[in-house]
């Protein structure tokens, strides 16, 4: 009898450890979210750029010219016309450059948009620094409204030597529903 109780206790001990283990692994799935963001920040994995403004105080490297290309798309049912003013610029690392992006809302109602940047090659992402960007906040356009949105950036002179061309792409998402919490407007569209 005592032998059986002993077995039951041992079983319960292992059971408890394993249940705790599986709960921890459930938590680990969620821990992967911030871990992934940190890894992306450090390595530029997936071409994520920083979403806060940089200072802009760097030495210009006049011996080097890097091509920066701009690509825009409207994603996930977004109806805005969204284009860069120039398709590409040649810049010296450290040189502060402004590029404007034009948006037009052809719909008959207000839409709130959020631009999400991505840099290719991914290794260049941490070296593309923005002092000002329309992508830092969401943008509101009234029905038929237009706007020129500025983006001011410079390249970190520490940009790896083998990178001569960088593509900065913006995907514009419709976040009206997300921001206002109002589903009706989305349906009316």
């Amino acid at each position: 009898m005592s032998e059986l109780n002993d077995l039951e206790q041992r079983n319960n001990r292992v059971l408890r450890k394993l249940v705790i283990g599986s709960v921890l692994m459930f938590g680990f799935a969620f821990a992967m979210v911030p871990l992934y963001d940190v890894l992306c920040d450090i390595t530029g994995l997936n071409g994520k750029t920083s979403d806060t403004a940089a200072s802009g105080e760097v030495q210009m490297d006049e011996d080097r010219l890097v091509t920066v290309q701009f690509v825009t798309t409207s994603s996930g049912g977004m109806v805005w016309d969204f284009t860069p003013q120039v398709r590409s610029v040649k810049v010296h690392p450290g040189e502060i450059t402004q590029v404007n992006f034009q948006v037009k809302n052809p719909a008959d109602h207000t839409i709130i948009g959020q631009a999400i940047p991505s840099v290719s090659p991914g290794l260049a992402a941490p070296h593309l620094l923005k002092t000002q960007c329309f992508c830092f906040d969401n943008q509101t356009l009234l029905a038929g409204g237009e706007a020129d949105m500025p983006m001011i950036f410079y390249l970190d002179p520490a940009l790896p030597k083998h990178i001569n061309t960088i593509t900065l792409s913006y995907a514009m998402f419709d976040v009206t529903e997300r921001v206002t919490g109002n589903k009706d407007k989305l349906a009316a569209r």
Partner: peptide, 14 residues
């Protein structure tokens, strides 16, 4: 199984 099925559960929860 104990290590990864909870991760799958996490993914579908997200």
């Amino acid at each position: 199984l104990v290590a990864v099925m909870p991760v799958l559960a996490g993914a579908v929860t997200m």
